[in-house]
């Protein structure tokens, strides 16, 4: 991860997908690192409400929840918890794939081992 700015850019990519209403990213401690919504509710839920939901999912590393009025896609990684707030008909496969890519980018390149430390194979 090259910095907070890069993380924000990556998360904003998610917001550009049709049907995505909001993206939140929390540290595992609960500290909110990113929160942005494309549509603001009149009486928006607080970040702690969203994190409380993520906590109640226990040790699940990937969860997709379908509610009466929307869907949530939640990923727990070593870096934190990502919550994607979606409309019911959002393209969830595309959103999952984008999350895979951006979470992998946020982790940065893996440290090389063995001969790969010295040569590009």
């Amino acid at each position: 991860m090259s910095g907070v700015g890069a993380m924000r850019d990556l998360l904003k990519d998610l917001l550009g997908i049709e049907g995505v209403k909001g993206v939140l990213f929390f540290a595992l401690s609960g500290q909110r690192l990113f929160e942005e919504f494309t549509i603001r509710e009149n009486d928006p839920a607080s970040a702690s409400d969203w994190f409380a939901l993520a906590v109640c999912l226990g040790n699940a590393h990937e969860t997709e929840l379908v509610f009466e009025r929307g869907r949530l896609y939640i990923r727990r990684t070593a870096e934190g918890v990502l919550v994607v707030v979606m409309e019911l008909m959002a393209p969830s496969e595309m959103i999952r794939l984008t999350c895979d890519i951006l979470l992998s980018a946020m982790r940065g390149p893996k440290p090389l081992r063995g001969i790969k430390r010295f040569f590009k194979l």
Binding site: E41, A45, D49, W50, A52, L53, C56, L57, G58, N59, A60, H61, E62, T63, E64, L65, V66, F67, E68, R69, G70, L72
Partner: peptide
């Protein structure tokens, strides 16, 4: 119990009742 709690959170977040959950634990 977990489904109930998720549903309660969903209602707090104005998403309504839980209809279905996909859970992956690796």
């Amino acid at each position: 119990e977990r489904v109930k709690r998720i549903s309660r959170h969903g209602e707090q977040l104005k998403l309504g009742k839980l209809i279905m959950a996909y859970v992956g634990r690796g």
